Simulated scan of single mutants.
Amino acid sequence: MDTINWILPTIAQDLASGNSTLMVTSGFFYGMMVGHVIVGPLSDMIGKKKTMVVGFIICIIGAAIGSQAGGLGGLIAARLLQGVGGAAASNAARAVGGDAGKGRKSAMALTFMQIWSAAIPIILPLSGKWVGNSFGWPAIFWLQAAICGILCILVLIFVRETSEISGKGCVKRITGEVKSCLATPEYVFFVLCFAFNMATFFLYSGSMSVAMVTELGMDNNHYANVYAWGAVAMTIFAFLGRTFVAPKVNPSVIIRALNAVQIAFAVFFAAAFLGNFADWHYMQYMLWILPAVQGIVLPVAMAQVMNASGKATGTGAAFMGFVQYLFSSITTTILATVKEGGSVGQYIGIMMVVTAGCSFIFCVMGKRALLKKDPNAII
């Protein structure tokens, strides 16, 4: 996503598709949503390692289709296919975090993962910018194919299979685990808390280029640089969160405090567009705030979900991914329907207020449900 979203305004110009170009991002989210439903049972049938390899192959096929697509429909189909493939690695990585321990231990483990997942996007928009400027935006899909090919080789060489492969009977077991998770109130509430946090973040990472470039006139290449600096901020704060915050502060306190920061950010962002004083010259620095906050809050929110899922970490991660991308695809689809002359930036700000506010509410509800079951829980 980070290699191509910066250039969506240019794609919109080339295809004369306007704000509906954001369906390219929605297509990826819908694919990730469907993919997480498939990945859970599949990883138990054939193992996580093989599932990840299959996922990378699907991503490469999607990239090949995207590079040859001559219209918006082909691009959306390609990104949907890539989303299905991308769900495999995402689900496997999150499931591991649930085995690290409870409370702060799990938060620290997943924050360590967040450091790396934040650091890689520093490179991706810059490499996408170089390829896109040198060879045209369709060539970015070949960059994606190369990245997935390298990752596939690394998985085959270095990753050990850790799943207990259940075979055909896993579907029945997975169904039982899903029912068990959904019957656990704190799990459901924490899933919703995490999903709304991710929807807040994807409103930034998936759609912000349209607001800043198309509406405010920022140069496309400059936006790619700003996005990369946002990834730097996310990496630094993920490290600070793991070192100084997660070991000392209870997870729910971290989430609620940072949700309040997100809401304040979103209110100002929406007001800037509504009041016609939005200007990319100063707002570009605001785009470092949200990823910095998310560098701390996302892994902590994820840890709460994986802790509440009990032993069903793979299933717990799969359902969490499904809900996360369901919400994210809805928000970007809404943005894609904004008609010409309407303000995408305005809607981004308003929806961020809603998503961050919902995260805050469900964090509180999850905390109450967990303390009712275990008064000694670290929450």
Rank of each mutant, 00 (worst) to 15 (best):
K373Y: 13
M1S: 11
G47I: 05
G230L: 10
G345F: 01
L124N: 05
F268D: 04
K49V: 04
L287H: 03
L156G: 11
I140N: 08
M218A: 01
A145W: 06
I60H: 04
T21H: 06
G31C: 07
Q68A: 15
Q304T: 13
I263N: 11
Y227F: 15
M352S: 14
I120A: 15
F141V: 07
W137V: 00
S26Y: 04
I60P: 00
K339W: 04
Y227A: 11
N5Q: 08
S17R: 04
L126P: 00
A211C: 01
I115F: 12
A16M: 12
F239S: 13
G35C: 11
A272R: 06
V159E: 14
L240H: 06
I255F: 06
M45Q: 13
G136I: 03
F265N: 06
K372L: 14
F273Q: 09
L80N: 07
V178H: 02
L110T: 14
M198G: 11
I46M: 13
S67R: 13
V249L: 04
R256G: 15
K367R: 15
V210E: 01
G85V: 07
P291F: 01
G128Q: 02
A233F: 09
Y227M: 12
T21P: 09
A100T: 10
G128D: 01
A231E: 00
R94Q: 14
Q304W: 00
